[in-house]
Design a protein around this nucleic acid. Structure first.
Length: 629
DNA sequence: TTAGGGTTAG
């Protein structure tokens, strides 16, 4: 049966329908007053002699538009609508507009919008949302401004779109202006508008404003809770994120999968294993299926909470894995110092049909640099360029500088930096500076530090790193100069903290901390332990104390480092043989690293340390990092 | 017609 006959049949099913076009814009089907159907083209129809007076029914076109599956199809129906003169009908034009926007065809949408004889709030919201969706913020704000100038108050559909544009641009100034419009329109109680504002303030790192709005919300729905929990995770308060997660359930709002991903992220950021296990039990209890996103988030959570084996179990149990899941698993092996396992995943990944991307290669190169796999790293760096046509960016170069630098090949690292065309950033210079610290290369360190301080003069870390290098070289006058500079610029060294998990609780220690109720026992244990370790060959290394003071004071300072206090507390508070899990906010100090190796041998305990950079598993006197960190 | 989710260097 021809297409035309099929259409003719369908027409009789719709009694009210007297007129419609075929798929061709030129050939149209018309009905006369006796319901006799025939075809004519648009020209004939609009000619003065044409006797046809069909009744036009927009519902037919609306139903045709619902079936559109691509832009060509929309354009076809659009042409048919144009022929009929139905472009006067707001329902039809709005539907066309919506479809163009859905298929991200903003050119056709704009043309349509410009020619619309009439527009309603829906038309405006579709256009504003369309521009926001494709990242054309200029036109998004321009259209919004035009809308406001019509004198209409924007509705609760338009405003979230324009607020999201502010969020994506990280433009809190514009966001605040829109917030004023929200208040003027009385929409500061609408859940969609307020949720968008909370999200915008949070992503623009104005947590206080986000929280104030959230707390004031009368009806907090699931998305608002999820946005707020995510904001806390993003802005570094993962503990508060988990508190909110519990409160949400108490207030009778059940989490969905998106909320669970956000809560899993909070556990990953917190790095606390018992929280990770609780979250996993919760997910199993509520029977959430492990889709590719939730599964990947859980790989990351377990890895960042110290168990790369649990991460692997999740990875193996996932039915669907994509390049992000594989990269997450490779990264997990990397920062746990299991570089070989990370590299072994690449061929398996390829054989399962997944291609690596630039992030996979960052993770692979990172794994090499943190396991001392120099030749493998060099090979992968070439492979990435030559076989996968991935142009290395500054992150790949940073891994390579780290790889070569740690191995003492500083000249080669510097040559690589000189040859690179990608823009050099602070991470790259930090990496070189770190390598100079390990190998005592003061001259190159000064060059790296100079570039670093130019790029980020407000970060105390760079000053501290250079000061460390001067201290190691005994250049105390230069150490003093750096300190003066820091004072002048009002910069303070970030204080070191160590957390430890004991019986589902976390305890925090700082250097020389005596605030813990068991402080006396902790120091006694520590002193006895040090004596025992010294008999086994442990020699405290005061290079890691940066003050120009006498040796005795240096030792006092070294012995009361937060890592050592936390380990001593762990030893007196946990069962013999059980692992000790600690987290440090900065990189672990070199002496504490040696200390931990000795403790693991003497006490037969596994000590798992998460520092600002990576994981260290101390066992039988050795560390998983192979002393590369 | 609206919102919120996963991996990466230093």
């Amino acid at each position: 049966m021809s297409k035309f006959k099929q259409y003719k049949r369908s027409v009789f099913k719709h009694e009210s329908l007297r007129y419609f076009s075929t798929t061709s814009a030129a050939a149209v089907l018309v009905a006369d007053s006796h319901n006799h159907f025939s075809t004519c083209n648009a020209q004939t129809l609009h000619s003065p002699n044409c006797q046809m007076q069909p009744t036009i029914n927009p519902k037919f076109f609306l139903s045709k538009l619902v079936d559109c599956r691509n832009v060509c199809h929309i354009r076809q129906v659009h042409a048919q609508v144009t022929v009929t003169g139905l472009l006067e009908n707001l329902f039809v034009t709005n539907k066309l507009l919506y479809l163009y926007v859905q298929y991200k065809d903003m050119n056709d949408a704009c043309e349509m919008f410009d020619r619309m004889p009439e527009r309603d709030p829906y038309s405006w919201s579709v256009m504003v949302g369309g521009f926001a969706k494709i990242g054309d913020y200029m036109n998004c704000f321009g259209t919004f401004r035009e809308y406001v100038r019509t004198g209409e108050c924007p509705d609760n559909y338009t405003l979230p779109n324009v607020i999201r544009a502010c969020r994506d641009m990280m433009n809190v100034r514009m966001g605040t202006l829109i917030h004023n419009v929200v208040c003027k329109c009385g929409l500061d109680v609408d859940q969609f508008v307020v949720a968008a504002l909370v999200d915008m303030y949070a992503r623009c790192r104005v947590l206080d404003d986000a929280r104030r709005l959230f707390d004031r919300m009368v009806r907090k729905d699931l998305v608002s809770w999820t946005v707020m929990i995510g904001a806390c995770v993003e802005l570094g308060d993962a503990g508060e994120a988990l508190v909110l997660f519990d409160r949400m359930s108490e207030e009778g709002v059940a989490p969905d999968k998106v909320t669970m991903v956000t809560a899993v992220n909070a556990c990953a950021k917190l790095g606390v294993m018992y929280k990770a296990r609780q979250m996993h039990d919760y997910i199993l209890g509520k029977k959430f299926s492990l889709d590719v996103i939730l599964g990947t988030a859980m790989i990351d959570m377990y890895a960042k909470c110290g168990s790369v084996d649990s991460a692997r179990e999740i990875f193996d149990s996932m039915r669907e894995k994509n390049v992000i899941s594989w990269s997450a698993m490779i990264a997990a092996y990397g920062y746990h110092g299991e570089g070989r396992k990370a590299l072994d995943l690449l061929p398996v990944m390829l054989s399962s049909g997944i291609m690596p991307n630039r992030i996979t290669f960052v993770s692979l190169l990172y794994a090499c640099s943190h396991s001392g796999l120099i030749e493998d790293g060099l090979r992968l760096f070439s492979l990435m360029k030559e076989e996968y046509y991935i142009r290395p960016d500054v992150k790949h170069f940073t891994c390579m500088v780290d790889l070569l630098g740690r191995a003492g090949r500083l000249d080669q690292a510097m040559k690589l930096i000189e040859e690179m065309t990608a823009e050099k950033d602070e991470g790259l210079w930090s990496s070189l500076l770190g390598a100079c610290r390990i190998h005592g290369h003061t001259e190159l360190a000064e060059k790296a530090a100079h570039s670093l301080l130019e790029l980020q003069p407000q970060k105390p870390g760079s000053y501290v790193l250079l000061s460390n290098i001067y201290a190691k070289a005994g250049r105390w006058k230069d150490v003093a100069k750096i300190r003066e500079l820091m004072t002048h610029r009002r910069l303070k060294k970030v204080p070191g903290w160590t957390w430890i998990e004991v019986e589902n609780q976390t305890y925090q220690f700082s250097i020389g901390d005596r605030t813990h109720p068991k402080s006396k026992e902790i120091y006694e244990k520590l002193m006895n332990l040090i004596k025992e370790l010294e008999l086994k060959g442990y020699v405290p290394n005061t290079d890691f104390v940066l003050h120009d003071v006498d040796e005795e004071l240096k030792l006092d300072s070294l012995y009361s480092h937060s890592e050592k206090l936390a380990i001593a507390f762990g030893l007196i508070s946990t069962a013999e043989g059980s692992p000790i899990r600690i987290t440090k906010n900065l990189r672990v100090c070199g002496d504490c690293h040696t200390f931990s190796k000795f403790v693991s041998a003497v006490t037969q305990r596994v000590i798992i340390v998460r520092d600002a950079n990576r994981y260290h598993h101390f066992k039988d006197g050795a560390c998983s990092c192979g002393d590369y960190w």
